[in-house]
Write a protein that binds this DNA or RNA. Structure first.
Length: 748
DNA sequence: CAGGCCGTGCTTTTT
DNA sequence: GCACGGCCTG
């Protein structure tokens, strides 16, 4: 969307030209919202507002970077600070940490640490960590924090009478968890918002000082704000009511995370003098895409009526591709992309969206087989890898010696013969003495009941940690390198032929690279806390490469705010979109959110939009017939049953018995009607996986772990078929369920 | 006490 | 298919 000033529509111009007072910009997808916001920022600066009086807040890092980049483009030189909510709050809290009981060097905990901590607390509270999953407890605590309910309030509200035993458990765990956080001088994601909201609510002097400083505030994606964020924003817009919020209720997809769609719906009630601008013209997509998406979203009841129109050409109809199963689906997508690429499309023109990350694997494999370059914006982020987290934990502990999560993570990594018992004794003593874990380690001699060996190991650890400092190393990358060398962290993997170990070494290298990049970007400003904050608040999606000719795979949630010429939305089926969980809960609200999610996905497409569904799909290891998503009948699309050639063997897990069995069942090329129900297709096909040739009694097979062996027995039928194999190397004999084993034929 | 192996249980979405 | 926890062994 490159446009010149003159091309602003009347509505866009109204938003850009608005200066003082509250402003609500309701912006449909592709309506040029970012352009309006950046132009408005530029306009304000031009008219004499100092950039530091502006506060622009987005939801994601990517959106923040994009906005910053575009403002810089409009006005080279002017530095307007665009930040995410979490980053803004982190910065504010570092400045005023003491007011909420923290020190400025507090750690931002990741989800893994949080889970670990909750697990420990559950044990301490004599609650069964199996019956009460740490994750679910954490989810409830998070929900409370997003609704501005702190631990004390929660306890007071529910300790007398809890709605259920989960709530009763949270009554005990939540306050203990907050004590643990405080003792660790740490916060979780939600605390960043909650602490800030509390800080502003309880300290009017600070509140009005900040309110005064930020004369103009812009909040993007306002429909995704939760109560805490709402309160923060309104606390800063009392004196100067120049609050501009933009968003689209139809793209609210974070209700599950505490987002309150009401925040945007009631903006006009909160600010009766608000100017409302509607951006309803879509400049992104073809007529057929816009029409289809508009019809879909029209089925939502709880919304602000808004039309979505475009002057763009009609384009090709939205296409619904139906496949036999997820293997064919993946193969079909890859084939379709290949065709379109042959006709001139660039790989970076394509995006594949799915409801859940788990669906990406098949597509990745299909793309790999065809050597189609691609990237995945997936949950398994770089900073989630164990080896990366370990090294980061060293940095965290250096920055914040109270960081119990970091200490526990690395005190025995690499192994220093410090077992769980010794660690528990040390930590208990540290708590009693009011010491940080690191101080306690240095004084391990005083800890009761520690073995001599453990005392020595703890002290050696403490002494080693004392040797590290950013000042000495000069740069974060140098410090990380020192830590790697001094601890011998990578020694365990060096020289290993194991692919996983190689990958670990790669990741460690990549971390050093990331640190150098930070060092370079931050210059003299570089600090451990700066680097750590970045690693804590940045995710994989933020680093997606848009330029380098690659197909992009991501979840529907991650897709918001992006656009691609050709979009595939995977698995538009009952149970996926809408997700099983939204259906099970049976609430109309959740179903509408699922509809919005599909709406968001569809409206990312500029020229071509493909929705896909399969007849059967493997879910949790079981093959089940699928039901088309009810949303399909609410939109406009042209169905097409696609018969792909069988997916070729995968190179990574090589041909499995299951894959081979599938293929033999599928090789008949009988014509199929355009649309079939799952049942029809199942009836027509051979659902029983036959044992393929090459796995007869006495044939040679290879197992990735056990090596080559001989089939000595065969039993069972169909999916339950088993093979018993005696392996050559250690003469062990193993029985496998054929359709689920990673065995592959040798020879033949 | 550490490491490896095996079985179980689960799987939405993310700052 | 996966990761994690638990169990067992060395």
């Amino acid at each position: 969307m490159s446009t010149t000033d003159a091309s602003l529509t009347a509505a866009q111009a109204a938003a850009v030209d608005h200066r003082d007072g509250p402003l609500l910009v309701l912006a449909g997808p592709g309506s040029g919202k970012t352009r309006v916001v950046t132009r408005r920022l530029a306009r304000l600066v031009e008219s004499g507002v100092r950039p530091r009086s502006l506060l622009a807040i987005t939801f994601t890092n990517k959106a923040a970077d994009e906005m910053q980049r575009r403002v810089a483009q409009l006005m080279p030189g002017a530095r307007v600070w665009v930040s995410t909510f979490h980053r803004f709050c982190a910065r504010l809290l570092r400045e005023h940490a003491a007011m909420v009981g923290l020190q400025p060097n507090f750690t931002i905990l990741d989800a893994g640490d949080q889970r670990q901590a909750l697990r420990q607390i559950l044990r301490d509270e004599d609650l069964d960590p199996v019956a009460f999953g740490a994750e679910k407890i954490g989810y409830r605590i998070s929900a409370a924090k997003n609704d501005l309910i702190d631990a004390d309030t929660y306890r007071r509200r529910y300790e007398e009478q809890s709605a259920d035993h989960w709530q009763a458990a949270v009554v005990r765990v939540y306050p203990a968890y907050q004590r643990w956080l405080l003792a660790s001088n740490a916060v979780d994601f939600d605390d960043l918002l909650l602490h800030t909201a509390v800080l502003l609510a309880e300290n009017d002097e600070l509140r009005s000082q900040l309110d005064e400083r930020y004369r103009y505030i812009i909040v993007d994606e306002y429909q995704d704000t939760n109560r805490a964020q709402y309160q923060i924003v309104s606390a800063l817009s009392q004196i100067h009511r120049n609050l501009c919020v933009t968003g689209d209720p139809d793209q609210s997809i974070y209700g599950w995370r505490g987002a309150r769609i009401e925040n945007i719906l009631r903006f006009e009630g909160d600010y009766p003098d608000a100017r409302v601008v509607r951006l309803e013209e879509n400049f992104r997509s073809t007529q057929s895409i816009v029409r289809s998406a508009d019809r879909l979203i029209g089925h939502n009841r709880k919304r602000k009526a808004k039309r979505l129109v475009t002057d763009n050409p009609e384009g090709e109809p939205v296409s619904l591709l139906c496949f036999r199963n997820e293997g064919h689906e993946a193969e079909g997508l890859a084939q379709r992309m290949q065709q379109l690429a042959d006709a001139g499309r660039d790989w970076s023109d394509f995006a594949v969206f799915m409801r859940v990350n788990a669906l990406s694997r098949q597509v990745e494999r299909a793309l790999m087989r065809r050597r189609i370059p691609h990237q995945v914006a997936a949950g398994a982020a770089f900073f989630d890898r164990a080896e990366v987290k370990d090294l980061i934990a060293y940095l965290r502990l250096l920055e914040n010696p109270a960081d119990r999560a970091a200490f526990s993570r690395i005190v025995n990594t690499p192994a220093r013969n410090l077992g769980e018992t010794s660690q528990r004794r040390l930590l208990r003593w540290a708590n009693e003495q009011g010491l940080t874990p690191l101080e306690a380690a240095a004084r391990a001699k005083e800890v009761p009941k520690l073995s001599k060996r453990s005392v020595a190991a703890f002290r050696a650890f403490a002494e080693m940690m004392a040797e590290f400092s950013l000042a000495d190393a000069g740069a974060v990358a140098a410090l990380v390198t020192r830590i790697i060398n001094r601890t011998g962290y990578v020694r365990q993997w060096e020289g290993s032929p194991n692919e996983k170990d190689l990958e670990r070494l790669e990741n460690v290298k990549e971390l050093v690279t990331a640190a150098s990049e930070y060092d370079e970007a931050a210059g003299d400003e570089r600090s451990l806390s700066g680097f750590l904050e970045q690693t804590a608040l940045v995710n994989e999606t933020d680093s997606l490469d848009t330029s380098r000719g690659q197909v992009t795979l991501m979840t529907l949630h991650a897709a918001k705010g992006l656009e691609y010429p050709v979009v595939f939305v995977l698995g538009v089926e009952q149970g996926l979109i809408p997700h099983e969980r939204a259906i099970r809960d049976g609430s109309a609200e959740e179903l509408e959110e699922e509809r919005r999610l599909l709406f968001v996905g569809m409206t990312r497409a500029r020229e071509q939009l493909f929705l896909t569904q399969t007849v059967e799909r493997v879910l949790r290891g079981r093959t089940l017939p699928t039901i088309p998503s009810p949303f399909i009948s609410e939109l406009e699309c042209t169905p097409e049953y696609v018969e792909t050639s069988a997916p070729a063997p995968v190179w990574s897990s090589v041909p499995t018995l299951a894959a081979n069995g599938d293929r033999s069942a599928r090789d008949d090329h009988s014509p199929r009607p355009l649309l079939m129900t799952g049942a029809e297709l199942l009836r027509g096909g051979t659902s029983q996986a036959e044992l393929p040739r090459g796995f007869a009694l006495g044939s040679q097979v290879r197992h990735p772990r056990y090596g080559v062996g001989t089939v000595v027995d065969i039993g069972g039928f169909g999916q339950r078929r088993t093979v018993t194999v005696t392996f050559r190397d250690d003469a062990r004999t193993e029985k496998f369920v054929a359709s689920q084993s990673p065995l592959q034929p040798v020879g033949h």
